[in-house]
Measured scan of single mutants.
Amino acid sequence: MQAFVKTLTGKTITLEVEPSDTIENVKAKIQDKEGIPPDQQRLIFAGKQLEDGRTLSDYNIQKESTLHLVLR
């Protein structure tokens, strides 16, 4: 499924993900596309910070959801 990641600069990245993907996995995909190390990434969805060990389905993130990427 497709999900979108919006950065603070307003850029939107499109990712191909599965509901079973972990947040860690998603961060690795963002690193592949953008070169941002996962340890600098914080992903926010519905106002919550997403934890590495959880999956997209844990957070009820469905296709075409938009996550927000904040860098630390």
Rank of each mutant, 00 (worst) to 15 (best):
G53N: 12
S65F: 14
G10L: 04
A3S: 04
L43W: 01
I30L: 07
F4D: 03
E18T: 15
D58P: 00
E64P: 04
A28H: 13
N60G: 14
I23Q: 01
L50Q: 01
V17P: 01
K29Y: 07
T7S: 06
E51Q: 10
H68W: 14
R42T: 15
D32H: 12
A46W: 08
I61L: 07
D58H: 11
N60C: 06
F45D: 01
K27G: 01
K27R: 05
P38G: 08
K63H: 15
F45Q: 03
T9S: 14
I61E: 03
D32Y: 11
E18A: 13
D32S: 11
E16G: 06
E34Q: 07
V26G: 00
I61A: 03
G35D: 05
E51F: 07
L50F: 02
A3C: 15
D52Q: 05
Q41I: 12
F45N: 02
L43V: 04
K48N: 10
E24T: 08
D39A: 12
A28S: 11
K29Q: 10
L69G: 01
S20N: 13
V17E: 00
Q62F: 11
Q2F: 13
M1L: 08
M1H: 05
S57R: 13
K48L: 14
Q31C: 10
P37G: 05
K27V: 02
G10W: 04
V17M: 04
K29S: 04
R54P: 04
I61R: 02
G10A: 03
M1Y: 12
A28N: 11
I61Y: 04
E34R: 05
T22G: 03
P37Y: 06
K6S: 09
L15K: 00
L15V: 09
I30Q: 00
G10V: 02
T9L: 10
G47S: 05
F4Y: 13
E34A: 13
T55H: 05
T12V: 15
R72Y: 12
I30E: 00
D21P: 01
V17G: 01
K11R: 11
F4S: 04
R42N: 13
M1V: 06
E51C: 09
F45W: 10
Q62R: 11
F45H: 08
L71D: 07
L69Q: 02
L56H: 00
I61D: 03
K33M: 13
Q40I: 12
F45S: 03
G47E: 05
L8G: 13
E24Q: 12
S57A: 13
Q2G: 04
G53I: 07
I30V: 05
I44S: 10
T14P: 06
Q41G: 03
V26W: 00
L43E: 01
E18I: 11
L69V: 05
P19K: 06
L15T: 01
N60R: 07
Q49G: 07
S57G: 11
L50T: 03
E24W: 15
D52C: 05
T22S: 08
A46L: 12
R54H: 13
A46I: 06
P37E: 08
I23T: 05
Q49E: 15
Q40A: 09
R54Q: 09
G10C: 05
P19E: 08
S57M: 11
T66Q: 07
T14W: 08
S57F: 10
T55K: 11
V70I: 14
P19Q: 06
T14K: 09
Q40M: 12
Q41K: 02
K6M: 12
T22Y: 09
K29E: 03
P19S: 09
I23M: 03
K6N: 06
D39I: 10
E16Q: 12
Q41D: 01
T22L: 11
L56Y: 02
R42H: 14
D32Q: 14
S20P: 03
A28V: 12
D39G: 10
L67N: 01
K27P: 00
K11D: 08
R42M: 15
G35I: 02
D32C: 08
V70W: 10
T9M: 11
I13W: 06
G35F: 04
N60P: 04
G47I: 01
D39F: 10
P37L: 07
N60S: 08
G35M: 05
N25W: 09
I36E: 02
D52R: 04
T9A: 12
F4E: 04
I61W: 06
Q31P: 01
D21R: 01
I30C: 01
K27N: 01
K63S: 15
S65C: 08
Q62D: 11
K33G: 04
S20H: 12
K33L: 13
L8A: 14
Q2V: 15
P37W: 06
N60V: 05
E18G: 08
L69D: 00
G47F: 05
L8H: 15
N25M: 15
S65Q: 09
L67W: 03
Q41L: 06
L50G: 01
L15H: 00
E34K: 05
E24F: 14
I30F: 02
V26F: 04
I36G: 02
K48I: 15
I13G: 00
Q49M: 12
L8P: 15
T12Y: 10
V70E: 13
G47Q: 05
G47R: 04
T66Y: 08
V5I: 13
